[in-house]
């Protein structure tokens, strides 16, 4: 029979169960909470992909520079000079975008560190809550009588603190991510301007 923190069956001695069992019961609840903080593994995987892309752009810049030197359809002709000018401008743009791709990676890696730390604190709170819940679920001993089932309200009350702290952790994470947001806003403006320059040529 599935257990629920707020409906302790009097016949079930939850206190006899191990902490790991308890934590396992609540695992479906922790996943979504941790998802609110973020997924560092995904961030790292994406960062790897963007690094490769930045390196490819740097290679592309090199190819464009080489093309400006060797692929001129008539070096000193007006067409040749125009081609060189366009290719060099494109090479500059590609080089700047390679740098911006790396800036984006840096923002993601900074975010991954903050997210990882917040997830660790959420997990600590969760484990603390499970332990407190387990203690609160123990049958209440009374003098000269059989143990009484725990008070469901008392059981529920032990979760109030951890829930408030998890909310505070997530709020603090938002604050920690503010510099990344600022950096991304600057990057976005720069990349839009870069696209505008390319299409205006």
């Amino acid at each position: 029979m599935p257990h629920h923190a707020f409906a302790v069956h009097p016949d079930e001695h939850l206190a006899d169960r191990g902490l790991a069992d308890f934590a396992g019961d609540f695992a479906p609840l922790t996943g979504p909470i941790l998802d609110l903080a973020g997924d560092p593994a995904w961030l790292s995987a994406c960062a790897g992909t963007w690094r490769v892309m930045a390196a490819a752009l740097a290679d592309d810049r090199g190819a464009l520079l080489a093309s400006a030197e060797t692929d001129l359809p008539g070096t000193w002709s007006p067409e040749g000079l125009a081609y060189r000018r366009r290719v060099l401008a494109a090479a500059e743009s590609v080089g700047r975008m390679s740098s911006r791709a790396l800036d984006l990676v840096a923002a993601a890696e900074a975010a991954a560190i903050a997210v990882e730390r917040a997830r660790g604190r959420v997990i600590e709170e969760f484990l603390g809550a499970v332990a407190a819940l387990r203690r609160a679920s123990e049958p209440v001993t009374v003098p000269e009588g059989p143990p009484q089932p725990p008070d469901p309200e008392r059981v529920a009350a032990v979760l109030a603190g951890p829930i408030a702290r998890v909310r505070a952790i997530l709020r603090a994470l938002d604050g920690e991510l503010e510099p990344a947001r600022t950096l991304l806003a600057t990057l976005t403006v720069g990349m839009r301007e870069e696209a505008g320059r390319l299409t205006r040529r």
Binding site: W42, C46, L187
Partner: peptide
Amino acid sequence: RAVPAQLAASFAEAETAFAAW
């Protein structure tokens, strides 16, 4: 896809700007 909502919006704008370029 892997960060809190506010930052996700900032990343989405940057990624879109990059793709547009």
